[in-house]
Design a protein around this nucleic acid. Structure first.
Length: 815
DNA sequence: CGCACCACAATTTTT
DNA sequence: TTGTGGTGCG
């Protein structure tokens, strides 16, 4: 029988802990305190789910399961209850420690918590916020991506898998494709009928179903589809070569971990005992394999918390399955479900639109966002005549906003396909609006970076045929294709590595001629491998020198070689910051791990003041005051492939939901009546998604509004400003309205006129210029184009840009 | 071996 | 329309 002071204790305990999290709303608090057992957290867009995850972890570490249990520590006496009572009514600094000690119940060691996300960026954000909240102890929490968590597990346990050692290398998608290409060629198959890309997808699907090459082959052996049989052969060879190179592709990282956990009791018990609490973010993006991993990791204590939003599942095409969310409650019948539906991000109008659109989907958990924010402005829907008009409208609207005090970084343009960005870029360029396109060439995809990393991989693991073949003749060492072909064939025949064949080339008749050159490369590699324990940046210097790569770049003084040199030095600064973070003794292998899994080094930099252009997919998780959704047309968004397919169409609609909910204050949806795409002109209807937005949320704009003569009036007239730009809920309202009011008609037209007339700068190839947005750079080409000129400038910081002289001139001066 | 030219295809993308 | 990748020539 529980005595009255015990009941009082439980109540006090809860109240004291709840007070710690008083900044959360009721649902958020509930989610933070529900620590035990499986928990499904359905967190709508902008509902503060990361905050919940962070606070939940903090609660675990500080108070353990105190709020989710009736257990009372034996040593609690009536005295203590009285103490807590007075502490609750009058908390004092000096009592805090004693109170904490009395209230907490089995606080969790940080290293017993694993929080898994999808992207490095999200993982990093989580680590930062945990560190800010918890200090040093936060560093022991495993806050990482699926892949890096698995790599950590595999580094310890992969030796249980035959053929693999802890020094394994990771193949990225390009590596995998290259390897498949070779295999397809070696099997005398035609690349056209066996596109490496789709073969890889097929293999990936097999791995998602946890089928290794043998199981897949068995399954396909009585398939009527001869194609599948052949793919099984390719898969088998692919797996064989990966194993020979001690390499894992991205899917293997997860698959092998799952297999170890399933098949090796020692491994399973170790990790299941270790992780008392498992949290998974973006659960709607997990595939079956990842779900299996998470289930296995959490099976020891069954404390699994998954956070996701079924309405934001947009990665079906890469294996994510919404069933994971929809089926969670079946797999964990004892699970609790908490919905976070209060949105802190967007205006009421935007949310109403988003809710209205998404409720046209049938397979969903059901959830409706609401907010205490003001209703805000209506959503502008603009129907352009063509894509140029659309792009102009966007640029003009940005200029109008900028003049009213918005920063460039407040704007984002979202579109369905990357191909749409060109026209918009062009319009922004013409109007001198600084912008960045997310999703272009990645730093680590540049040839010179891949080369340097390939060298490092080979130094690390000479069996890495793929990377070795990449750099064996870069810079040129007189080792031609036919020689390499011969070496490769020999290596495959002898089931040995390319390096091994090269090392013994002088004893081989068929390689006699090339042997001296091959041996020189072998010596280079061995020399480098011998010094691989140097501090990493020193090793890198030696590599640049001895490989001859630097001298190759120094031979010709071209812009291109210059950028390459800069990139190579940029990689060095990456190495140095890696050493800073992980200590000077951090090794090559560790660095390569990090690099292999960390692809977005040119990350999205929030500090730069420029407009951002990206696909809706890459906008997930981000937010902007003003969002443009371009190309809202049937055939584009929803895409032509999804029309008529119910499931596909629902995924597109979720994508639309994601796009809408990125906006905090203002949404502008544009479409074009006529659009040139892939060289064809099409006439597209306005997107059904736009029509699904309730009329009372919408203001339809027509082209007259943005035509030059009316632009100043249309956007800047006082009344219009106040009605369409309600910033009353925004923190720095003073600043914004201030600028808005000072803005006059004159300055608008003045500015737009000057763009045309003030282009009296004469630029020649080789001139150095200073641009307001891009910094300093050199003109590398000037192409006259009827009354204007297209200039190409290699900027020191931001790379090469093409600009129209007349429009760019006002933002630029000659040095 | 490097460069120039032509054919071809083209949602979305993280690790 | 644009970018890429493969082939063929100098």
């Amino acid at each position: 029988m529980t005595s009255s002071y015990e009941i009082a204790f439980l109540e006090l305990r809860r109240k004291i802990i709840e007070r710690e999290f008083n900044r959360l709303n009721d649902m958020q608090l509930k989610a933070v305190l529900a620590t035990e057992g499986p928990l499904l957290l359905l967190a709508g867009a902008g509902s503060g789910k990361t905050t919940v995850i962070i606070n939940r972890i903090a609660n675990l570490i500080i108070y353990g399961r105190a709020c989710d249990s009736d257990e009372i520590p034996e040593q609690i006496k009536e005295d203590d209850v009285r103490f807590l009572e007075s502490y609750l009514s009058d908390p004092s600094e000096k009592d805090a420690e004693r109170a904490k000690a009395l209230v907490s119940l089995y606080p969790v060691d940080p290293w017993r918590i694993i929080a898994i996300t999808f992207t490095n960026k999200a993982a990093e954000e989580m680590r930062e916020r945990l560190a800010a909240m918890l200090g040093d102890s936060a560093s022991d929490i495993w806050a990482s991506t699926f892949h890096s968590a698995c790599v950590r597990i595999l580094r310890r346990d992969i030796t249980w898998l035959e053929g693999f050692g802890p020094g394994f290398t990771i193949y990225d998608t390009t590596d995998s494709l290259l390897l498949l290409k070779r295999i397809i060629k070696d099997m005398d198959l035609d690349e056209k009928s066996w596109p490496p890309r789709s073969v890889l997808t097929e293999i990936s699907t097999a791995k998602d179903a946890q089928l290794d090459s043998q199981e897949y082959s068995e399954l396909m052996s009585d398939s009527r589809d001869p194609r599948k049989k052949r793919i099984a052969e390719i898969y088998t060879e692919y797996a064989k070569r990966l194993r020979a190179a001690n390499a894992l592709d991205f899917d293997d990282i997860i698959l092998h971990t799952v297999r170890l956990l399933k098949n090796v009791a020692e491994v399973r018990e170790y990790w299941q005992r270790r992780f008392r609490y498992v949290l998974v973010d973006e659960f709607q993006d997990t595939n079956r394999l990842q779900y299996e991993l998470v289930s296995l990791l959490s099976a020891g204590h069954r404390n699994i918390c998954v956070v996701g939003d079924d309405d934001q599942s947009i990665y079906k095409f890469r294996g994510a399955t919404i069933e994971n969310i929809l089926g969670f409650e079946n797999d964990y019948p004892e699970s609790r479900v908490i919905r976070l539906e209060q949105n802190y991000r967007s205006t009421g109008c935007i949310l109403e639109a988003a809710n209205a659109v998404i409720c046209n989907n049938s397979s969903r958990k059901g959830k409706e966002l609401w907010t205490k924010n003001t209703r805000g402005e209506k959503i502008d829907i603009y129907r352009a005549t063509d894509e140029t008009d659309e792009a102009d409208y966007i640029a003009k609207a940005m200029l109008a906003g900028y003049r009213k005090g918005q920063k460039w970084r407040d704007f984002a343009v979202l579109y369905r396909m990357n191909a749409q960005s060109n026209r918009i870029e062009f319009a922004l360029k013409r109007n001198g609006i600084p912008y960045r396109v997310i999703g272009g060439m990645k730093f680590f995809e540049r040839a010179e970076i891949k080369d340097m990393l390939a060298y490092l991989c080979v130094i690390n693991n000479t069996n890495d045929d793929l990377r070795l073949l990449r750099i064996v003749n870069t810079p040129p060492r007189g080792i031609g294709d036919k020689t390499l072909e011969q070496v490769r064939i020999t290596a495959v025949e002898e089931e040995s590595s390319v390096f091994e064949v090269m090392r013994t080339s002088s004893e081989r008749e068929e390689l006699r001629k090339a042997a001296p050159r091959l041996m020189r490369f072998v010596e280079l590699t061995e020399h480098l491998a011998a010094v691989k324990h140097l501090r990493l940046d020193e090793l890198y210097d030696v590599l640049l020198d001895k490989s001859g790569y630097m001298s190759m770049l120094n031979e010709k003084d071209t812009i291109e070689n210059n950028t390459r040199r800069e990139n190579i030095l940029e990689l060095k600064s990456n190495i140095i910051s890696f050493l800073k973070e992980n200590g000077d003794e951090a090794g090559l292998a560790q660095f390569l791990d990090e690099v292999a899994l960390y692809t977005d080094i040119d990350q999205y930099d929030i500090d730069a003041d420029s407009v951002v252009l990206m696909t809706i997919h890459s906008a997930k998780g981000l937010e902007f005051p003003t969002v443009f959704i371009a190309g809202a047309e049937e055939g584009i968004f929803p895409g032509i492939r999804s029309i008529g397919e119910r499931e596909e169409l629902e995924e597109e609609r979720r994508l639309c939901y994601v796009a809408l909910t990125r906006a905090k204050e203002k949404l502008i949806i544009t479409s074009a009546k006529q659009r040139m795409l892939f060289g064809r002109t099409t006439n597209n209807q306005i997107s059904r998604f736009a029509s699904e937005i309730p009329e009372n949320c919408v203001e339809e704009k027509d082209s007259a509004l943005h035509l030059k003569p009316r632009i100043s009036g249309g956007y800047v007239k006082g009344e219009n400003v106040r009605r369409t730009w309600d910033f009353s809920d925004i923190a720095d309202v003073g600043q914004i309205t201030d600028t808005v009011h000072r803005y006059s008609k004159e300055s608008v037209s003045q500015k737009s006129n000057s763009a045309v007339t003030d282009s009296n700068i004469k630029l020649n190839k080789g001139d150095r210029v200073e641009h307001n947005a891009f910094g300093s750079g050199m003109v590398i080409s000037v192409t006259p184009t009827g009354g204007d000129a297209l200039i190409e400038i290699a900027f020191d910081k931001v790379g090469t840009k093409k600009l129209m002289l007349k429009f760019a001139a006002q933002y630029m001066r000659k040095l």
